[in-house]
Design a protein around this nucleic acid. Structure first.
Length: 389
DNA sequence: TTGGATT
């Protein structure tokens, strides 16, 4: 701030004293708002592999030229240090920044293709400008969607999510990041609840969740899958999984600082407030398994997997019962109890998504016909209503 | 007796 005042007073002095030519000293380029101008040296790097470390990140971009600063952005909310998959690199020399874009943009690292581009100046007005769009017609392309939204402002990025198993069919949901938050707000006002040209159903447009605001349940799912693999490796038999995962509460290290996080995750995930009897009877993860979680490569994108239909749940059923039933058979990425909108009671069915076919098939074979209380469950792969004759 | 979807 004092520097800005100095610069302004220098300029005013110059103006009032008339032209004095070369009296200003050379120094860092100062823009009118007083910030140093990083626009030619500062890069944003997107789609980094989840397990890439700060050191690897610095090493990769340091190979191009001298770095003034670099930062791999991590999750600071959960404190687990998870990479958010992007980072910033500020070079000393603008030529090196240009070279980094030309050399490293599009580089394939593991399953990712990294994107290297100039970072926009950090500013409050570009924050929270990311929209989540659902209910899109399946035929709508990314280009169509951009065309629809572009009337409200400059689009920075866009994406339509596709089904992973049926190879590229639109899931009808996507993201649009605008340059400015107010543009995103206008797009919500203009497009939320509207039918796109020729569409049968209206779309929903709202601000996207931040990846770091992931639910406890989603985090727990990731941790569970990772922890289970670390203990057991790939599994093919449920008996192995049952016997190899240590039971809950087995001698947690009292000095382990991750314990409060685990407790919070469990409570958030299972909705346990006051009734210990609702705790799962198996252990999703153990304290020990969490000590080396930072930087591990978590399992693939959500939305992929095998969807299982579970019928004849009681009106009181909640998500925890589905985790308890299906978790022991393998990697579960999502569970959902379908509830009546007004009563909030379970409508008698739900869905479970499992990553691996073998584990899903084993769960179905084992749980179809399983007696839960006074009900007999029907469990099968989800069928599509669209295939009816 | 087969939803909604969060890169």
């Amino acid at each position: 701030m004092s520097r800005m005042v100095t610069i302004i007073s220098t300029m005013e002095t110059q103006v009032s004293n008339g032209p004095s030519g070369t009296s200003l000293p050379n120094g860092p380029v100062i823009s009118t708002n007083g910030a140093t101008d990083d626009s030619k040296t500062n890069l944003i790097v997107n789609y980094l592999p989840q397990n890439m470390t700060q050191e690897e990140f610095k090493s990769l971009f340091g190979s191009i030229g001298e770095i003034e600063s670099c930062k791999l952005v991590r999750d600071k909310i959960t404190d687990l240090g998870q990479s958010l998959g992007y980072g910033f690199v500020n070079y000393v020399d603008p030529n090196d920044a240009d070279k980094a874009i030309n050399t490293l943009n599009g580089l394939k690292l593991q399953t990712k293709t990294i994107k290297v581009s100039y970072a926009r100046p950090s500013s409050a007005s570009i924050r929270d400008a990311n929209l989540y769009v659902s209910g899109l017609p399946k035929t709508m392309t990314q280009k169509d969607m951009e065309q629809l939204f572009s009337q409200y402002g400059r689009i920075i990025t866009s994406r339509i999510l596709v089904d992973q198993v049926t190879a590229g069919i639109s899931r009808g949901v996507g993201f649009i990041r605008f340059d400015k938050r107010n543009e995103a707000e206008e797009a919500i006002k203009g497009l939320n609840g509207q039918k796109p040209l020729g569409a049968a159903e209206p779309i929903t447009v709202k601000f996207a969740n931040n990846p770091s605001q992931k639910t406890g349940q989603a985090l727990l799912t990731q941790l569970y899958q990772t922890a289970a693999r670390r203990y057991t490796g790939p599994l093919h038999h449920q008996t192995q999984r049952f016997s190899l995962i240590p039971p809950f509460g087995k001698g947690p290290d009292p000095n382990n600082s991750t314990k409060p996080i685990l407790d919070n995750l469990l409570n958030a995930s299972y909705g346990v407030k006051s009734s210990p009897s609702l705790l799962p009877r198996f252990s999703p993860i153990t304290i020990d398994s969490m000590t080396s979680l930072a930087g591990v490569n978590l399992t693939g994108p959500t939305g992929a997997g095998w969807c299982i239909f579970v019928y004849n749940l009681s009106p009181e059923a909640d998500e925890s019962v589905l985790w308890q039933l299906f978790g022991p058979f393998g990697a579960v990425t999502n569970v959902k109890v379908i509830r009546d909108f007004t009563t909030n009671k379970c409508k008698g069915f739900g869905f479970v998504t499992m990553t691996n076919y073998d584990e899903a098939a084993m769960a179905i074979a084992s749980l179809n016909g399983y007696r839960l209380g006074d009900r007999v469950l029907q469990v099968s792969f989800k069928t599509s209503k669209q295939h009816k004759a």
